[in-house]
Computed example of a mutant assay.
Amino acid sequence: MPRPQRSEQFSPEEICYVHCIQRCVRRAWLAGVDPVSGVDYSFRKEWIRRRMEALASVFAIDVLSYAIMSNHIHQILRNRPDVCAQWSDEEVAIRWLRVFPGRRMEEHLAEPTENDVKTLVRDKKRLAEVRRRLCDVSWFMRALSEPIARMANFQDQCTGRFWEGRFKAQRIIDDAGLLACSMYVDLNPVRAAIAGGPEGCRFTSAYDRAEAQKGEQVDSAAFDLKPIPTEEAGRKIRETPVDDLRKERKAKRKNPTGRRILRDAWLSPLTMKPDILSGEAEVHSGGVRSSDRGFLSLSWKDYWELLCWTAKQSVQGVKAEVPPRLAKCLAALGIDVSMWRDLVWNWQRYFGKSACVGRPESMKQHAEQTGRHHYRGQGSGAACFA
């Protein structure tokens, strides 16, 4: 059965949860230690993390979980058209111009000006399309992948592909699939024997959340959402040498707003607030993410405990009981507790080739809604759910 088109999997007009996988070309280790040349490209993982953080500050898309590996990346994203609808035209314009200024940097070498923002706001047709793109997962992935490829190719003095192709997408359609997929993503370094447990899994959302619990802060990569006065920008370009403008722009890129934030502040909160109505947008006002809505019914303490327990179950066939309190949480989501370890550690066996993730009944219902008979993985994954 052919993989469905992106337009069939998710839409910018509705809130969707999407597991995105982007691989380096030929699965080469272009963000790790190259086994052939021995060159260490691990620093590029921080490039990718900071770019994700920057985009989370302008797109109407929540980054729920992520893992950056040596030759691929995983992300769980949630687009938020309800949040984007509450932004003013000026907010939409400056957010878009921060990522896509519309001119080559060498001709520009300056921040978006007030005049640039007003020009875009006056073009209502263009602005409506921009508003739609700001809550489109495909545009988020494009804005993430292309700059990283350009930077890597420039550094390596080469041309050609950095990424294998367009990202692979899996629609997550229920809470059980979301929890299992989040654990799968956060435990990728453990599965690859890069780390012994979640506490050592750098460049994952779980690591960021755990370090933030200890109070660790980082320089914010969030875009500055204030346009530059047009007269000031013009004077600066006329009076400042081009090389100085380049240096200034490069320095500001390290911390555009001059702020320090908790390491996980740009990620979506993990726990949903029980007293918030489901239709409430919970728009974030701090400028580092799109919303303050959580995505799981578990507390961080329970999630971390379950993550650590699952990480220890690396040996196939060894029976270990899930702690009773956590087993109750899994059962409430319709997950077969005895199959939890197998579901997370053997995720590829059950859902590796599926375009949809969730309980069998949820997958069946979604297939019918999209005019399909069934999804691949619908039968094999049934054993993991009660």
Rank of each mutant, 00 (worst) to 15 (best):
P4K: 08
S7R: 15
E8Y: 12
Q9F: 05
S11M: 04
V25F: 08
W29E: 08
D34N: 14
F43C: 03
K45W: 13
R51T: 09
V58W: 08
A67Y: 11
I68M: 01
N71F: 07
R80N: 06
D82H: 05
E90Y: 11
I94F: 09
R95K: 06
E106H: 07
H108P: 00
H108V: 10
A110K: 11
E114L: 07
E114M: 05
D116L: 14
D116P: 10
D116Q: 13
R132E: 03
L134C: 07
F140D: 02
E146R: 06
I148N: 03
F154R: 15
D156N: 05
G165W: 07
R171D: 00
I173M: 02
D175Q: 12
G177E: 01
G177H: 01
Y184S: 00
L187P: 02
L187V: 04
N188M: 05
G197S: 14
G197I: 04
T204S: 08
Y207G: 02
S220F: 15
S220R: 12
D224Y: 10
D224N: 09
E231K: 14
E231A: 08
E232A: 13
A233T: 13
G234N: 13
P241L: 05
R246W: 06
E248S: 02
R253G: 00
K254F: 06
K254Q: 05
N255L: 07
R263C: 02
D264F: 14
S268Y: 10
I276M: 09
L277K: 09
E280P: 01
E280W: 15
A281H: 12
V283K: 09
G287H: 15
D292Y: 05
W300T: 02
K301H: 09
L306I: 14
C308P: 00
G317M: 04
C329K: 15
A331Y: 11
A332H: 15
G334C: 10
D336N: 11
V337W: 07
R349L: 07
F351W: 02
K353P: 00
A355Q: 02
K364L: 07
H366R: 14
A367D: 04
A367R: 11
G371A: 05
R372S: 11
Y375C: 01
G379V: 03
F385C: 04
